[in-house]
Write a protein that binds this DNA or RNA. Structure first.
Lengths: 186, 186, 186, 186
DNA sequence: CATGAATGAGGCTTCATTCAT
DNA sequence: CATGAATGAAGCCTCATTCAT
């Protein structure tokens, strides 16, 4: 049996299930059973399933951005970094069989108004947006407003690439978006 | 009480709930109660909840495309039509309080492998994609391959606009996508 | 499509299902669907599922006894006829894959106190019993009481043979019972 | 209210209903209502209705054989023991108003291929058969084959006695079978 | 801190029957 | 005489959560 402590086991099992199987589709029972944990032990650590989802999303946020940053770190210019983001998407989504974005997915068919969860989604998406703005603002040829506008266009491209590739179960949408991105940055 | 016949009442109530409340979040009991219909009456007309969802999506497909086509019909050129699609998105999504695309949403957190539902989603998305390709192929300056590639870029823009506006609960992503689209068509 | 009239089609389909699939396990819907008949057409001819079962049992009674009598008819003496009954059981039960006696089966797990059905079962079993008594009474060496007592012993053997062969899905119990019978008649 | 723990209460209520009312005729709702237990409590202890039936049959097997063995224990010879079995049947079946054998009954009209249940029935019947064989093998005058053959004849008598008495709601079939048995053992 | 029994509400589906056409 | 829509009751099962130990 895994020797990680209880809380950690719960988080890891739940994260996997929430992402690959869906939040609504994953029951508490499956989580505790696969984590080899007693039910009340789970409720000791997490007030509710919703709270567990929040932790899942916080972790995912950190890991996912970390992976992205590592991936694009070798690139010299900010433009190259942005364009490489799409290569990262391909790498990632092929590996997870085009399961799509955990944040998009959990927000799509959410039990009514689960604010805590929605807040994490917004946080994640806004941080990415802000980071893209930042990258562009470092470009000497753009003023602040121009940088933000261009960044928003790229944000839409990224999200569109993810959702379309998920539905099509194919990476062409990502390559398509990348092509657009390149033109925008030209 | 609404005097539509039972089957129609079921479809309309279910469609509303599936779209605004979510597929997983909507139970048979709520549907029959709001439609003022007996449970077995529902199962007379629909073999399962999944089958009801299929009918919902088929209806939605027809209505949604119909609305879109009506909206852009006055536009003279194909380029203008494509650009007007984004105006349509704004109109539509503001009216439904940025609830997003029924097809995207239902595909995001679906009980495992509900093929019949996923098939409807793919059908819908592919039809839109094909239509965009068609519009562009009528342009004398593009060969077939160029038209399809450009079309795919616009597809990603449209879907990205929808999902980002849903998460942001705001129409800026649509305007952003439209700006990108205009540049692509220039 | 079968050109038998509606009522006949219903009876034949229901009989097959009631026997091989079980009374409780067979729903009205399956019957009408396999008989290609409308639901209310069925209720035109039969007041209830229970009534349909009664007709099924009446038919079965006639057919089954008819088959038995044909089978043993060539035998010369009454003793030989009785002993041949067990050969008939083997023939019959092997053909129906040891599904057992339709009357025993329907009476075993019957919706509470369905008198009309139970009456048919009793009728069937009593007729067989009376017939066996009659055969034995024609024997010059037995008085009436002796004949009836011996007959009852054979009745038990017959029923035991059927139920045990059904549970064991094998014909050894019938051969066993026959051996006992032969000894009783010696 | 009964102070037995929940699981025990469920088993006892279910056993009573399964036996006297029939397996198919007994719903989960009736069981939990009469056991004063929540539905999910039942499913905590038993994976399904079928599993509950298996436990019911296992209990019944132990209790029933125990009762039989106690009943015949005073008898000196094995032959006397076997003959006393029929007295036991009378005692038992009169007390339960000729409800018959729980194993026979549940196997008669079973939802298609419920293997786990059928397995318990076979187990029970085979154990009785083996025990009868054993008793007879201790008889110095029979070789192994003869003992088994004779035992099988008695098995059929026992089962026949039960099913006929159930249908006739009378104990004459048991007395009849006993008479036959005595002759076989003579 | 960990356990698993117990819960009420609700999940989807099927039952035998009746009714309007 | 035939149809299929409509029904209320009941079917088996699972949910997220709490509580006594």
């Amino acid at each position: 049996m895994n020797k990680l402590d209880v809380k950690e086991r719960i988080i890891q099992v739940a994260s996997d299930l929430f992402y690959f199987q869906g939040y609504s589709q994953t029951g508490i029972n499956q989580i505790i059973s696969e984590a080899h944990v007693a039910k009340a032990s789970m409720y000791q650590h997490f007030k509710s399933k919703e709270d567990l989802a929040v932790v899942y999303l916080q972790r995912r946020h950190t890991l996912w951005l970390g992976n992205l940053f590592s991936y694009i770190e070798p690139k010299k210019t900010n433009n190259e970094k942005l364009i490489a983001c799409f290569d990262y998407l391909i790498d990632w989504l092929e590996e997870v069989n085009f399961r799509g974005c955990g944040f998009q997915n959990i927000s799509c068919d959410l039990p009514q108004e689960q604010h805590k969860i929605m807040d994490q989604v917004t946080l994640h998406k806004n941080e990415i947006r802000k980071w893209i703005h930042t990258l562009l603002k470092e470009d000497r040829n753009l003023n602040e407003k121009q940088a933000e506008d261009l960044g928003d266009e790229i944000v839409v491209l990224l999200e569109g690439a993810i959702i379309v590739s998920q539905i099509q179960k194919n990476s062409w949408p990502i390559k398509s978006a990348q092509k657009t991105c390149i033109r925008l940055l030209a």
